[in-house]
């Protein structure tokens, strides 16, 4: 518990900044909703002027910008990219930071086991991710209620749970990455590379029917906002996400117990 508390003490500011940034972005984006809603049919005509592929690529295909939840869904894809980056970086640093900053000699010099270190770090990070999902839920619902008359609690719960699973997917990927790439300067481009490659894979699978099968390998498609709001989380997405999380975290944990702290 000491290490868990210590992690909070040293990292709460970073978590706060991320959460303020995400909620701030959504508040800013949603503050424009009334203007979009007022444009109504004019906006639809303007959107129809764009080629369908472009609208699919940019995520505004078949979206009614006059509906607050659909408008939020459009913004949600950018939140996903930002929080995927956050989660993969958090995962990467959570267990490798002590090594990259050479403080592991101090920490492992205390009466602790490797399992204690690993589980404390993972527990702290997972709770950080949960807090971010809750902040998203509270922040979004508050902003939606402020800019429209809507109070879509059920939809927001589904989106927030989807966001949580989505972030945990990237967090697990980050933890595995952190095991193999200790130095942050080397890990950052690889981590962000994974985030953006999977994002562009989702776009490709959206705009090209021949590449539709790619939707099975990218979590951006599994957690598309409109899909979540209309159909909930699909069985495939749930199983695949949980598999990556469990296998990733258990595998990285097993490796952590036998790794050299250099």
């Amino acid at each position: 518990m000491r290490l868990f508390k210590f992690e909070w003490r040293t990292q709460w500011k970073s978590l706060l900044i991320w959460n303020i940034s995400v909620v701030g972005f959504l508040a800013l984006a949603m503050s424009m909703f009334p203007s979009f809603a007022e444009m109504g049919a004019d906006l639809d005509v303007m959107m129809d002027g764009f080629p369908p592929e472009m609208r699919k690529a940019l995520g505004f295909y078949m979206i009614d910008f006059g509906d607050p939840i659909q408008y939020l869904s459009y913004m949600f894809q950018y939140v996903l990219v930002a929080l995927a980056a956050y989660a993969v970086l958090l995962g990467g640093s959570s267990v490798s930071k002590e090594e990259s900053e050479h403080t592991i000699d101090f920490l492992y010099g205390r009466p602790v086991t490797r399992l204690y270190i690993y589980s404390s770090k993972i527990a702290h990070s997972v709770i950080s991710v949960i807090i971010t999902s809750v902040a998203f839920f509270v922040g979004c619902l508050g902003v939606l209620m402020a800019v429209s008359e809507a109070s879509p609690v059920k939809e927001m719960i589904i989106l927030s749970v989807g966001l949580l699973l989505f972030m945990l997917f990237f967090f697990a990927v980050g933890v595995v990455l952190g095991h193999f790439v200790i130095k942050p300067a080397r890990r950052l481009p690889i981590g962000l590379g994974i985030v953006f490659v999977l994002f562009f894979t989702a776009i490709l699978s959206n705009i090209n029917d021949k590449m539709d099968a790619l939707k099975y390998i990218t979590p951006y498609r599994w957690f598309e906002a409109m899909h979540l709001v209309r159909n909930g989380i699909s069985g495939w997405a749930l199983i695949a996400t949980l598999a990556v999380i469990v296998i990733g975290l258990a595998g990285a944990g097993k490796l952590y117990l036998r790794k050299d702290f250099t």
């Binding site: 040293t10 900053e101 050479h102 403080t103 000699d105 101090f106 010099g109 205390r110 009466p111 602790v112 086991t113 490797r114 399992l115 204690y116 117990l257």
Partner: peptide, 21 residues
């Protein structure tokens, strides 16, 4: 790993290079 944690209260370690938070 396990019994080392039980022995560590009896061990003091000074690394060659000292890095702290």
């Amino acid at each position: 790993d396990h019994n080392l944690a039980q022995l560590k209260p009896r061990i003091g370690y000074l690394p060659s290079e000292n890095y702290y938070y």
